[in-house]
């Protein structure tokens, strides 16, 4: 406490607070409306996926490896999108997603192994409950569907059966909705008889293919969307855990944000909990924004992603000497599915050095996966760490929560929860 009063730009925290508890505690957040869904971590005690399968929890090293795959695939996809010649080449190959091998390297997608936050929605009539990964970095919502003509992985909820839904219908190949799949998935649709067939492949080679369909989406008893367009997956493989699929919150016309625009006005918000043992929320539509400060979206390079502009970083209250150009040259997106923030290497190295300087009382620990600024807290039950503040376009300053600064590697080690890209131009 004494140290804290002398140096106000420190957080003093119990090391145990960086680790999840063994039991779930539910959020008491204020932003609750009819259209609020509970957000929970796929591998924490609030998830029914974990409660009955505690041994399926992956190692942190695995999650960070998946995270690197996602970060690389986002960068590959943005590079791809900037090359129109490549897009033409892709769209000419009408049958490519039927041939899995032909589809692999053509359109980089988003790795999903690290898409760890789930929400529960309802689909069909009568409504079936589905737990979906929520992802601001992709657009198409899909779920596994009976009869799983080729392959379904094991999921926790019963697999959606369109034959049991009175409001279900397929989309025809000739419809305008079918052609929208090209931008939403990066792949041209195909046809099975007259039914539109989608295929979406992610950067880690996870994929879902099946019928492009519509049915009733239920966010809450009062928020129901007939004719919601989604993928009814008949061939699904990859790092989806035991979830039922994915909820796409990107900017494309097929995303849930766009499809519900008439009611929610393309407005949504979420809060991710401090640890995987507590819950957060995802709210559609305007609710009390509370104390939110707004930064403008930056001009977008891709159809899906939400670009913002970082202008400065503060460590321990002190602004780092990083040229704004470093951030402008690369651009920045905000993503609910990437775990660790990636910075241009020049910015990251400056941040790491400043953080280490203010943490010099703690011994260093070896690097862990993509994290290379690590500390040994053996013998400590509480530690003092520098505050970290990001400044975004429009002068918006955001103080990070301590659990957004350090990630615990175990009970005695933690690492700065940031990583550098390979190159300032990434």
């Amino acid at each position: 406490g004494k140290a804290n009063s002398q140096l106000p730009h420190l957080h003093t925290l119990q090391i145990s607070s960086l680790l999840p508890a063994s039991v779930c505690s539910h959020s008491t957040g204020s932003s609750k409306t009819q259209s609020t869904l509970k957000v929970f971590h796929r591998h924490g005690p609030c998830s029914k996926h974990t409660r009955q399968n505690p041994t399926t929890k992956p190692l942190l090293a695995d999650l960070l490896s998946y995270d690197q795959s996602r970060a690389k695939s986002i960068q590959a996809r943005l590079n791809f999108n900037s090359n129109t010649d490549n897009i033409k080449t892709t769209t000419l190959n009408k049958n490519k997603f039927i041939d899995r091998k032909a589809n692999l390297p053509v359109q980089p997608g988003i790795s999903l192994g690290s898409g760890n936050y789930l929400v529960t929605i309802g689909l069909g009539t009568p409504t079936k409950t589905l737990s979906l990964i929520f992802d601001t970095g992709s657009d198409l919502t899909w779920t596994q569907c009976e009869p799983c003509a080729r392959s379904c992985y094991t999921q926790k909820d019963p697999i959606f059966n369109p034959a049991s839904s009175s409001s279900y219908s397929n989309i025809s190949c000739s419809s305008s909705q079918c052609s929208q799949l090209t931008s939403a998935t990066g792949n041209d649709p195909a046809c099975s008889s007259t039914t539109c067939v989608y295929g979406i492949q992610y950067g880690d080679q996870s994929f879902s293919k099946g019928f492009f369909s519509k049915d009733k989406l239920t966010i809450s008893p009062t928020d129901v969307f007939p004719g919601f367009l989604f993928g009814c997956g008949q061939d699904n493989q990859g790092l989806f855990g035991r979830t039922s699929g994915l909820l796409g919150l990107g900017r494309d016309p097929l995303s849930v944000v766009s499809q519900t625009a008439a009611k929610y006005g393309r407005y949504f918000s979420y809060c991710l909990p401090s640890t995987s043992s507590s819950t957060g929320h995802l709210t559609f539509g305007k609710s009390s924004a509370g104390n939110a400060k707004f930064t403008p979206f930056a001009s977008s390079q891709g159809a899906s992603f939400y670009f913002i502009e970082i202008t400065s970083i503060y460590i321990g209250g002190r602004q780092l000497s990083i040229s704004e150009t470093i951030f402008k040259n690369s651009g920045t997106i905000i993503d609910s599915g990437t775990v660790i923030t990636r910075l241009p290497p020049t910015a990251y190295s400056t941040m790491s050095a400043a953080f280490k300087q203010l943490m010099k009382k703690y011994p260093s620990a070896p690097a862990y996966s993509i994290l290379d600024t690590c500390f040994d807290f053996s013998g400590y039950t509480s530690v003092s760490i520098p505050t970290v503040t990001f400044e975004f376009g429009g002068g918006v300053k955001v103080d990070l929560h301590p659990n957004g600064i350090l990630v615990a590697i175990g009970k005695t080690q933690a690492c700065l929860a940031f990583a550098g890209n390979g190159d300032d131009t990434d």
Binding site: I74, L272, A289, G290, Y306, I334, D335, S336, P344, G404
Partner: peptide, 30 residues
């Protein structure tokens, strides 16, 4: 491209006003 990831978003109220072209951050969202 840089990526502002979900670890750094923890406990923040992250508000997407897509129609309004802006993103909000609020402290203590959950």
């Amino acid at each position: 491209v840089g990526i502002f990831g979900n670890t750094q978003q923890k406990t923040l109220e992250v508000v997407y006003d897509v129609a309004g072209g802006k993103l909000g951050f609020g402290a203590g969202g959950c």
